[in-house]
Design a protein around this nucleic acid. Structure first.
Lengths: 205, 205
DNA sequence: TTAAAATATTTTGTATACAAAATGAACAAT
DNA sequence: ATTGTTCATTTTGTATACAAAATATTTTAA
C-alpha cells in the first residue's frame, strides 16, 4: 500500500513552485506568470493563483516575482532569528531531555562524517531541534518561514563549506548539555552572527 | 478630492471579512462559507476565496472557521511578543529620538484623558511605536500579525479597563527616556505578563 | 533622435459553470 | 436506541471565458 500523494492541484502547484524556487531553478527576481506555470503543470490558473498567493504570504514571492532579498533584508531576518534562537537555546539548556540531546549530538556527528547532503540536512536539523524544543508552535512557525528565505539566500553559497560551523554546533551542544543557559545563548548568537556575515560576504562574489 | 477607495474586489472582501471578525460580528468558531459571503457582498466567490486564504495565512481563520484560540495559544503568542517587544524597547532606550519620545508621551496622556476608543487606539499605538522604532520590517510584520489574534482575544474584555495599564506605560516611557535599557525591558516584560494574565482571567467569566 | 501618444499585447482580476469532496439527513438492520 | 449504510445537500476545488489593468510596442510629432 503506497502512501497516496496529495491529488489536490493547488497543493501540487504549491510544492512544485516552492521547490523550484528553493532549488534555484526559478532564479531570484524571476517574474512568475500564472498561465505559463499552469500550462507547464497541465492544470488551470486557479490553483496556480492560490499557490502563488500562499507563497507571497510566506515571503518567497513578492509582486509576482521570486524574492530577491537585499543585504538589509537578510540582516533583518537574522536579527529576529537571533532573538528566537537565543531564547530557544536558553530554554534547551534548562529543560532539554536526553532524547533531544542525543539527537543534537548525532547532528554534530553527521556534520563531521556525512556527505554534503547529509551535512546540510544535519545542520538544518540541529537548529530545528532547538527551536522545536520550545514547544511553541507560534515560534516554530515563524522560524520555519524564515528558514525558506535563508535557504534561498544560501543557495548560491551551498558548496562553500563554512569553516568552524560544526565546531560551533558542538560548543552549543555542550553548553546545553551542561545546562549553562547563558553560555549557550552567547554561543548561539555568535554562531548566527558568523553565519550571517558568511552569507553576506559570499553574495558579493 | 476624496481619497479613492480601493476598487478591487478581493481587497474589499479581505477588509470586510477581517473587520467583521475583529469587531466580533463573526464570532469565534463561525464557519465561513464562500458563497454566502460572496452573495452578502454582491461579488463572486473568486475574490472571497482569495481573501479567506489570506486571512488563513494571517491566522485569523483556520479550517474555514474564525479562529478560536485556546489559553495555550494565547500564551504562545505572548511568549513571542514578549521576546520581540523586550528587544524593541531596549532598542528604544538606546536610540529613540525626540520625535518618537513625544509621540509615546502623548499616548500616555491620551490614555489618561481620552474616550474609550481613544484610549484603546493610544494603547495600541504605544506598542506600535516601540516596535516600529526597530526599523526592522520583518519584526514589525510578525508583531502586527500577532496583534490581530490578540485583539480578537481581547475583544471580549474590551470594556473592562485593566487597572494600572497606563501607569505601566508611563513607567516604560520614563525608562526609555532615561535611556535605561535594562529597566525598560524589565518593565515591558512585567507589563505584558500582567496583560496576558488579565486576558486569560477575563476569558473564564 | 528623442519624447509623447496611441495602439497592441500580455497578464491579472472576476464571474460563472461544473466536478469532486465533504457534510448531514433519512433509513435499515441489529 | 445505536450503529452503519445509502442518498441528498451543501460546500469546496477546478476549469474556462471574459473584462480590466498593466506592459510593451509602434507610431507620430518636435
Amino acid at each position: 500500500m503506497t502512501k497516496k500523494a496529495t491529488q489536490l492541484a493547488y497543493i501540487q502547484a504549491y510544492e512544485y513552485i516552492r521547490d523550484r524556487i528553493l532549488n534555484g531553478e526559478l532564479e531570484r527576481g524571476t517574474k512568475l506568470v500564472e498561465e505559463r506555470l499552469a500550462e507547464e503543470m497541465g492544470i488551470s490558473r486557479t490553483p496556480v493563483r492560490d499557490s502563488i498567493r500562499k507563497l507571497e504570504q510566506e515571503g518567497l514571492i513578492k509582486d509576482k516575482r521570486v524574492v530577491n532579498p537585499s543585504d538589509s533584508d537578510l540582516r533583518d531576518v537574522f536579527q529576529v532569528r537571533t532573538l528566537l534562537e537565543g531564547f530557544a537555546v536558553r530554554h534547551c539548556a534548562m529543560y532539554m531531555g536526553e532524547g533531544d540531546l542525543d539527537k543534537l549530538r548525532n547532528c554534530v556527528e553527521v556534520g563531521r562524517t556525512g556527505t554534503m547532503e547529509q551535512v546540510m540536512a544535519a545542520n538544518k536539523e540541529f537548529h530545528e531541534i532547538i527551536v522545536g524544543a520550545t514547544n511553541n508552535p507560534v515560534m516554530i512557525d515563524i522560524f520555519e518561514r524564515m528558514q525558506s528565505i535563508i535557504y534561498l539566500f544560501r543557495k548560491t553559497v551551498v558548496y562553500h563549506k563554512r569553516p568552524l560551523l560544526i565546531d560551533e554546533h558542538q560548543d552549543i551542544y555542550e553548553a546545553i548539555a551542561a545546562h549553562d543557559a547563558d553560555e549557550a545563548e552567547r554561543l548561539m548568537k555568535a554562531h548566527l552572527q558568523l553565519d550571517l556575515e558568511f552569507c553576506l560576504n559570499r553574495m558579493k562574489g
